[in-house]
């Protein structure tokens, strides 16, 4: 597990929830390896923000993408080579703001990918502005009088958009989070984990989440129960909120075809081109 670490200097603030996410992910990968999943088949990507630094801290292949686009990046990698397990790390600003169109469509088309959102309710890296998940009244440098918008609810959004695996984790509960991550990676379809992540510098939510969360207790196969769980505001359920089976996008689109593996040599291409031209 330790060799999943890299030599990159860690620049997260001491106490940041991102450490819990990093540790949970390493555990999840170790767990998958013990089940025979080769880590070389993992392809990771990240947006831009504090969350995204995880890309440098994991000894795994992939592309350190741009703000909000990691969701598209991993879908492209998956379509190129469906044998990859693709994972996107995003921030709440990243995923629900800049990249929200990709998020909705990834869920809608059931792209086989894992979306891990480091949901700290703030733009960390750009010093504390409100995000789509910040509470009404949140004061940041762009909303000095407090945000006048109500927050988005990520779980409801994803359920409605068609995600086939929806979960909520908490960076303070590493073991449970690692378990959710492993399940999400193994899920054949769009798997979404909203990770409650305290930002000790701009939005310290440790107390709130330590006291205000509880294990999800409904049947995750029941969509109505999942919607009800997602709507809860008194205490936030943690765990798998919804899970269902549906053919993944790459399978629908490609069938057995693997564009990288099945890429034709030049001669085969020229033959096919000649055939197509002879018909035009």
């Amino acid at each position: 597990m330790s060799e999943l670490s890299t030599k990159a200097e860690n620049t997260w603030c001491p106490g940041c929830g991102n450490f819990g996410i990093l540790n949970a992910f390493k555990r999840a990968v170790a767990g998958l390896e013990s089940e025979g999943v080769d880590r070389g088949r993992l392809y990771i990507s990240a947006g831009i923000g504090c969350h995204a630094k995880i890309f440098d801290y994991l000894a795994l292949s992939g592309l350190y993408s741009i703000h909000g686009r990691e969701i598209a990046t991993v879908q492209g990698a998956k379509l190129a080579n469906p044998n990859l397990y693709v994972v996107a790390f995003g921030g709440d600003g990243d995923v629900f703001g800049e990249g929200v169109s990709h998020l909705l469509f990834a869920a809608k088309r059931n792209a086989d990918m894992t979306m891990i959102v480091h949901d700290n309710g703030v733009y960390g890296l750009t010093t504390g502005q409100y995000t789509p998940t910040s509470r009404r009244g949140f004061k940041g440098p762009s909303t000095p009088a407090g945000s006048v918008e109500d927050p988005l609810d990520p779980l409801t959004l994803m359920l409605v958009a068609g995600a086939t695996f929806v979960a909520r984790g908490y960076s303070g509960k590493v073991e449970q989070l690692a378990d959710l991550m492993a399940k999400a990676i193994k899920h054949r379809g769009f798997a979404f984990i909203d990770v409650l992540q305290p930002c000790v510098t701009f939005n310290d939510t440790y107390k709130k989440y330590n006291a205000g969360t509880e294990p999800a207790a409904h049947d995750p196969a029941d969509f109505a129960a999942a919607m009800a769980a997602a709507a809860r505001r008194d205490r936030l359920p943690l765990g798998v909120v919804y899970e269902t089976d549906k053919t993944a996008f790459d399978r629908e689109l490609l069938g057995e075809h693997n564009p990288v593996r099945d890429s034709l040599p030049q001669a085969g291409r020229l033959e096919r081109i000649a055939r197509v031209i002879s018909r035009s």
Partner: peptide, 21 residues
């Protein structure tokens, strides 16, 4: 895909996985 931003970022993802896009 959903829009041109999705288009090019998917293509980049595909290329980094070894497909000519």
């Amino acid at each position: 895909p959903e829009n041109e931003i999705g288009v090019i970022n998917m293509a980049i993802g595909a290329a980094t996985a070894g497909a000519r896009a």
